[in-house]
Design a protein around this nucleic acid. Structure first.
Lengths: 256, 256
DNA sequence: GTATGCAAGATTGTAGACAATCTGTATATT
DNA sequence: AATATACAGATTGTCTACAATCTTGCATAC
């Protein structure tokens, strides 16, 4: 199907939106493979399907995602830049491996995200009262859900991650500008990775986190920026402490 | 599906380093074009050679850097991810433009970097006294240099940026872990971009910044973490205010 | 048995080709 | 002349090829 080559004698109904039936000769060009690759690989990492420390081979991933190496490669560079993947340099070439999970890294990561959220939360606390009320209503709902799981001893913990994430997102989204939001979006999944892979830490101490959430909600209601910031930082700080204990027991992963 | 290769590390049988004389048939493969592209393009942006709002064409940059589009493209994705470049989406395709400079963005950016440095500075303040002394010695030297430029009315302001950057780096490098350091390295040049492109704001109010630096040095000497954090945040916050005035006068760039 | 060196396979980094899409302009139609 | 249409150039997104390099396994020598 020659579109515009010098001898374009092919009278094509010009602007007609091509039906999806168009035969694509190469790949599945939805014009967005890179993004797809990025999110899919990130999910593989966050969910532990790609183990910490595992050695990444571009071609394998490309096959898995049914696309060529090019977008996969770019996606890996993003992931590297954001810390999901690290580079084992060897002179010229680089080997990519899934970033290991270490106690030290967790400490730094949690500290950073605590401050990022704190900064956003500070601004959330300064919103007009009406908006804050709307937010706290949602937050309370999330926290209630967590409590239910808690009392039900519902071992189907899959939902916990999502609920907690929603709780935090709900606060961040309002207070953060585009930059801070982007930053949060790039960091948060890495904290989530620790969560998921050391799930037991969260499950057992969930009630503590829920209580901390209550404090945060109260602070937002009061419109006390400093207290909100403190609350969020504390929530992460404590989460880190709890996590550290579990890492101590089960060992770090992917670092040898 | 085998995701994990048993990653074993074996002592490398000391292999002979190949002579560099190898003939390279294609391009200049130093195995690292991507990095080169990233840093060069970033510098073009930070220094204003690529104007805010300017429309980026991959092929042009590739020609300029004498390499193919592939590494340039990846580099642009990094830059996009970090906010130097933004994407004007149009259905499938995306146009990349150099991120514009706006007062709002500057506000958020400076706020973020202030907090990032504050977090790192907090840890720097908690280092043993001997190390802190070494650091403050250097810091004082930088600040002295700034004062000299100030009194000399030396219009050769080129050095100012570097000296100030060194001042801050000197603090951050010690306190920050690898993650925070990487974050800082990715954000700081963007603040520097505002600096350079609205240079007049800095030059005129340099004495204020220098005074703030003194306070930071004193705080580090005292080992007062909170005060260091405050000082750094204030330095950026005030810088932002000064910058905002200049932007108000000269207008935003690249946003229409 | 251990160390050294070579060869084959695996993997990465870059280039270049091609397809798909967008945009502007010249042309036709009224 | 104003508007719609078609074409050509420009640009992006993806793929494939190929060279450089690294790893691994094996054969050989000590």
């Amino acid at each position: 199907m020659l579109w515009n080559r010098p001898g374009g004698i092919f009278a094509m109904p010009s602007r007609v939106v091509k039906a999806k039936s168009t035969l694509r000769s190469k790949g599945d060009h939805d014009g967005n493979s890179l993004r797809k690759a990025f999110y899919e690989i990130r999910e593989l990492i966050v969910h532990g399907r790609l183990s910490p420390g595992a050695w990444i081979v571009e071609a394998d991933l490309a096959r898995h995602l049914s696309m060529s190496r090019t977008p996969v490669r770019s996606a890996l560079h993003w992931l590297q830049r954001e810390g999901y993947v690290i580079e084992r340099k060897n002179a010229r070439k680089s080997r990519m491996i899934v970033a290991p999970l270490t106690k030290e890294d967790a400490g730094e990561l949690y500290s950073i995200i605590g401050h990022v959220e704190g900064l956003a939360g500070r601004r959330t606390a300064m919103l007009p009262k009406a908006q804050r009320a709307e937010i706290t209503a949602r937050l309370k709902s999330f926290n209630t859900q967590l409590r239910q799981i808690l009392t039900a001893k519902d071992s189907r913990s899959a939902g916990i991650f999502d609920i907690d994430r929603n709780f935090h997102h709900c606060i961040i989204e309002r207070g953060a500008g585009p930059r801070l939001l982007a930053l949060h979006k790039s960091i948060e999944p890495q904290a989530e990775r620790y969560w998921r892979l050391y799930a037991s830490s969260i499950i057992n101490d969930l009630h503590l986190s829920v209580a901390e959430h209550d404090e945060i909600i109260a602070a937002i209601t009061a419109g006390d920026a400093g207290r909100v910031e403190q609350g969020l930082q504390a929530n992460w700080q404590n989460g880190c402490t709890r996590l550290a204990r579990v890492i101590e027991i089960f060992g770090e992963r992917g670092s040898w």
